[in-house]
């Protein structure tokens, strides 16, 4: 356009848009958040592959396929693009033992999405974390398979060897000739043998596919928290509650109860606290609620680990607190501006 045009209409031929305010928009979008979470899981997946070989990728892939195909078949058209089904699948894969048959991983993903999410109306409506619901389903359905842990990476002769009967025919039992081991929590609970904390942190132990490399998960979680894609209050309160509670127990009887550091880095606590509990849909919307939610999870984890029949309780702790979330949300409604005196502590004048 030449400088001569003074009439604004002819300058850019604006088809004037009418929109409600605000006319600006923060750059974040739901798919962006979801895919960022997926991206932040890549180091975790890489660590899993490093420790558990091709089995890790196979299991994660099968779980993701189950989740994604179910979403595609029964979900709203196009809902795959928001990335939430992929997250569910990957997270589910990360919390399965590396040796599970792929068909079981697939069913877990399908169940998680189908019964955990789509029944409630899809993205944003579900009450329970779909990945954990899938995991809980598998745990209840195939308890033997789900507690058959591959040996710790040091015990496996070669990296490329499958860590179990991954390729079992659908609906058939896996054969049981793989090298098996015990998780640090199992060793602690049933044999009172603590595992060295440094090994826990770097992940050179037996356990679920993606939950062993504690430090990697922690770093990825910090990245997400820094970008405000997870509410840091939830993991912080979980860690605090677990450390405090297990610390007290440890002081009472160091031989029976593990140290707080062991409690923090063993089992699925890192993965659960940073990726499962912080699932936006199934955690409280209020910050006060986030604290309550996290502390509740922390306490339940220690209770189940210490007095329950199972060595690990992160999954159940999160699911139980998921069920409480609607209640917590109601109980922690923010006090609106100007209604001083009945304001919750969160909004107390700074």
């Amino acid at each position: 356009m030449s400088e001569a045009t003074r009439d604004p209409i002819s300058a850019g031929d604006p088809l004037l848009q009418l929109r409600a305010s605000p006319h600006l928009k923060a750059p974040d979008s739901t798919p962006k958040i979801m895919w960022n979470v997926v991206g932040s899981l890549i180091p975790v997946i890489a660590a899993a592959t490093w420790y558990f070989g091709p089995s890790a990728l196979l299991v994660i892939g099968a779980a993701t396929l189950g989740a994604v195909l179910t979403e595609r078949a029964f979900g709203t058209p196009g809902s795959l693009a928001d990335g939430s089904a992929a997250i569910t699948g990957i997270l589910l894969g990360l919390c399965l033992p590396a040796g599970v048959p792929l068909w079981i991983a697939f069913i877990g993903g399908a169940f998680g999405i189908g019964f955990g999410k789509l029944v409630f109306g899809g993205l944003g409506q579900n009450v329970f974390n779909p990945a954990l619901l899938g995991r809980a389903f598998l745990q209840a359905a195939f308890p033997a398979v789900m507690t058959t842990w591959p040996g710790s990476p040091g015990e496996i002769p070669s990296w490329s060897q499958l860590r179990g009967d991954n390729l079992a025919i659908p609906f058939a039992s896996p054969s049981t000739d793989a090298v098996t081991g015990a998780t640090p929590l199992g060793l602690m609970k049933f044999e009172s043998t603590p595992t060295d904390v440094t090994r826990l942190m770097i992940g050179d132990i037996s356990g679920s596919v993606g939950e062993t490399a504690g430090v990697v998960i922690l770093l990825c979680g910090i990245y997400l928290a820094a970008r405000n894609y997870l509410n840091w209050r939830i993991p912080v309160s979980i860690f605090a509650a677990v450390a405090l509670f297990s610390g007290i127990l440890h002081l009472l009887d160091p031989a029976r109860f593990a140290s707080p550091l062991f409690a923090l880095f063993s089992g699925g606590l890192m993965l659960g606290a940073l990726y499962m509990a912080t699932d936006m849909v199934t955690s409280p919307v209020t910050n006060a609620g986030a604290w309550i939610f996290g502390i509740g999870i922390g306490i339940l984890v220690v209770v189940i680990r210490t007095w329950g029949g199972l060595p690990e309780g992160v999954m159940y702790a999160i699911l139980l607190m998921n069920a409480l979330v609607p209640f917590i949300n109601r109980a922690t409604q923010p006090r609106p501006y100007g209604s001083r005196g009945r304001r919750a502590g969160r909004e107390a004048p700074a």
Partner: peptide, 22 residues
């Protein structure tokens, strides 16, 4: 527009402490 994912960002933004999500 996507479904509400209950991220709580609106609660953290609301200057008059409402629950826009709800």
């Amino acid at each position: 527009t996507y479904p509400c994912i209950r991220c709580g960002h609106c609660l953290d933004a609301c200057p008059v402490f409402l629950n826009p999500s709800l």
